[in-house]
Nucleic acid binder design. Structure first.
Length: 578
RNA sequence: GCCCCAGUGGCCUAGGGGUUAAGGCGCGUCCUUGGUAAGGACGAGAUCGCGAGUUCAAAUCUCGCCUGGGGCUCCA
């Protein structure tokens, strides 16, 4: 954020605090910083704020701004500060934490004084009276800690010009329109039922079609990249989770155990221990490496109810998981293989921009410093050999090993965490996994965990928002809809539909009672890529009049010609319609 | 989990202590057979999220629960 904007936003926060104090003289002030797109301020208030309150506060703010008040900075002593803010417990807490030797500054404008480091504008007349808007009030813990009192936070958007504010508000509206929860319902892609429980997803037939297309592609890509596909059960004895360490490190996210024949079983939060058991079924030789085992594994994790969000954060989801067992000297090359496959899959799904992070050793970790260094080096070398730009995320690795995370950018430039590639020194140790090396002795393999799409649920959600529900043809639940102009053509349409289905095209006939215009409208709203209008002329000449969801009209086309075109688009997984 | 907001036929919305809860979409039947984004008529469909309480009377007020939404990450 540039300096000017920062000053404006921060000053607006002060002006807002003044307006709130005018309405609630006993309000206790938290903090009020400038943030991306605007500002906020936290208050402890005698009652919850209503949307009407926000309007009132905003009006008062404009009045204050029009008063042309100077912002005046003053440095005061610690004692003066403690006296001045004696009625403001949160401010006192902050003052007490300031280093002894540092001067304490306050900013005053109009009747309002705040403990503040600055910077601010010189005078309220510099504030964009039409460039800001209060958006909403919500709860926020003091200092983000749920053990502290909960304050009311008022968020405002603020920009230098009304045009920029409008662009921002338009963007918020666009995000709302693309929301996968809204589109998921409208397009009947998925459903969450109260009768089932929160965070548990029902994939409806149309969402199922997308998933099958995605999974088919995923399997194919994995076979070609040298993976084997495995399957594992949903529950396992609790001891497995004790050995894996999940019960210790991950208990809060696991569902409670169930008892079967006097044995406790846990529903799986991860697939790893199952793949480890597959590894351990017999002695392994270095000649088998790398072992690449992939599974679309459905896992269940208890997430706090407040963090659940549509398809993006759920309690039951399917990871496109894989575990790869390698010798230390194979690590670098294998990482390259994974990233290659990953970028290929993301590109095919329409994502060409990403942010890559390399996370290094955290404070608490297992394994030797030497192995950490070697693994981190292998990850870094792979990224560099591939010429990928990345950032280091120091100390953000998992306790068991370093990792590469990839966030994809969607059509609105928002980023989503999907891919993760993690090196693991821990599980091979805990499960005492070994292989016989060239020297005839037992060695410890390195285990790589990786998920490319992350979870199918989240990836689906991201896809919905990225494409605004208008999926590329290969992913479209219905790829073409046949629209007979009169009932005379219904029979011909069903004959064509059958022919297209046999060729592998997902097609439907709209034989309902609506007129053609209405059927086209419906197909448009459903974002069906091809609308095939069939009237008497087409039926007689074995043609279809091809209309695209982009409103482009390709005119009559021979049935075989259309079929050829669509199959080409599907097979190449093209983003185009023609 | 915590704070605030919300829950009305399948969907979107109106109503807001007092007869049969209103409209649009969708659905059904009938008329219409229409050439590239909404033809017309009629009809069915709701114990107003669930449970309890207050009241002569509750969709409406109160409490609890369930579900959903925003926030709890931006450090004077």
């Amino acid at each position: 954020m540039d300096e000017k904007l920062l000053r404006m936003r921060h000053s607006l926060a002060h002006v807002m605090a003044q307006a709130v104090l005018e309405m609630f003289p006993d309000a206790k002030l938290g903090i009020g910083p400038a943030i991306e797109d605007g500002f906020y301020y936290d208050f402890l208030l005698p009652r919850p704020l209503t949307p009407e309150d926000l309007k009132t506060i905003q009006k008062r703010m404009k009045k204050i701004i029009k008063g042309n008040h100077d912002f005046v900075k003053k440095e005061i002593t610690r004692e003066e500060a403690l006296e001045m803010f004696k009625d403001q417990p949160f401010k006192l807490e902050l003052i007490r934490e300031l280093p002894e030797d540092e001067p304490i500054s306050i900013y005053t404008h109009s009747t309002f004084v705040d403990l503040c480091r600055g910077p601010h504008v010189a005078n309220t007349k510099e504030l964009p009276i039409k460039g800001f808007k209060l958006l909403e009030a919500s709860g926020a813990y003091w200092r983000g800690d749920e053990r502290n009192p909960q304050l009311q936070r008022i968020y405002g958007a603020a920009f230098e010009t009304p045009e920029e504010l409008k662009a921002y508000l338009d963007r918020l509206e666009e995000i709302k329109q693309r929301d996968h929860r809204k589109l998921g319902k409208e397009l009947e892609l998925y459903h969450m039922s109260d009768a089932i429980g929160s965070g548990l997803v029902l994939w409806l037939p149309k969402g199922g079609a997308v998933r099958v297309a995605l999974e088919d592609y995923w399997r194919d890509a994995h076979f070609k990249a040298g993976y084997d596909i495995v399957f594992s059960p949903h529950i396992a004895k609790i001891d497995l989770w004790k050995t894996s360490g999940h019960l210790d490190f991950y208990r809060e996210n696991m569902y409670s155990p169930m008892e079967v024949d006097e044995q406790e079983y846990e529903i799986k939060p991860m697939n790893c221990p199952f793949h480890v058991q597959m590894y351990k079924m017999r002695k392994r030789s270095y000649r088998e490496f790398p072992l690449r085992w992939a599974e679309l594994g459905t896992v269940y994790r208890y997430e706090r109810s407040g963090v659940l969000h549509g398809l993006m954060r759920v309690r039951g989801f399917t990871q496109d998981d894989a575990h790869i067992f390698v010798r230390p000297d194979q690590l670098n090359e294998e990482i390259i293989n994974i990233l290659d496959l990953n970028l290929d899959i993301l590109r095919t799904c329409g994502f060409s921009e990403y942010d890559i992070y390399l996370s290094t050793k955290p404070e608490k970790y297992v394994g030797t410093d030497e192995s950490w260094e070697r693994a981190t080096e292998a990850l870094r070398a792979a990224l560099e050999q591939m010429g990928l730009k990345y950032e280091i995320d120091p100390g953000e690795g998992v306790f068991y090993g370093p990792k590469i995370d990839i966030k994809i950018r969607d059509a609105l430039g928002r980023s989503w965490q999907c891919t993760t590639v993690q090196v693991d020194f821990n599980l091979p140790e805990r499960f005492d996994m070994t292989y016989i090396a060239e020297d005839g002795k037992e060695h410890r393999p390195i285990m790589i965990h990786r998920a490319l799409m992350g979870s199918l649920e989240r990836f689906f959600g991201v896809l919905i928002e990225h494409y605004k529900g208008a999926f590329p043809v290969w992913l479209s639940p219905i790829q073409a809809r046949l629209i007979p102009i009169t009932d005379e053509q219904i029979e011909f349409c069903f004959k064509l539909a059958n022919e297209f289905k046999q060729a592998g095209i997902r097609v439907e006939v709209d034989d309902g009672p609506d007129r053609m215009q209405k059927k086209i409208r419906n197909a448009q709203l459903e974002k069906i890529p091809y609308q095939l209008v069939v009237g008497e002329r087409e039926a007689q000449s074995n043609q279809v009049a091809v209309r695209l969801r982009t409103n482009e009209n390709l005119g009559p086309m021979a049935v075989d010609e259309f079929k050829k075109m669509v199959l080409r688009i599907i097979e190449t997984r093209s983003q185009d319609l023609q």
